[in-house]
């Protein structure tokens, strides 16, 4: 199954990436070669194999419902490009 130029544009759009013509072509080619490589896995017979939900065989890692300290206000906004009156601020959304 080949990935089309249209799919690359769609994925770029979903990822909020603006690609040039050259980039679209380059990534279409690169993504296809990656997928081709991974397609080798399709040759393995997986009948009767349960889908893997997680890479490690570990279940039920849980914490008790107990309150822990939240961050101090100064720390919260330390990396924020824009914050005012206790809020993170973001540019116009829609």
């Amino acid at each position: 199954m080949k990935i089309s130029r249209k799919e690359v544009e769609h994925v770029a759009d979903l990822a909020r990436l603006k690609l040039t013509e050259q980039e679209i072509e380059l990534y279409t080619e690169q993504l296809n070669s990656i997928l081709e490589y991974a397609a080798k896995l399709q040759q393995i017979d997986t009948t009767n194999v349960e889908p893997t939900a997680h890479a490690v065989q570990l279940y039920n890692v849980l914490r008790e419902d107990e309150i822990t300290d939240s961050m101090e206000t100064e720390k919260v906004f330390e990396n924020a490009p824009w914050a005012e009156d206790g809020y993170f601020r973001v540019p116009k959304i829609v």
Binding site: I67, D69, V76
Partner: peptide, 16 residues
Amino acid sequence: CGCSTEFGKEPNSQVC
């Protein structure tokens, strides 16, 4: 995470 879920607190006071 262990942040409180209490409603109506100062904005961004229950975050980690």
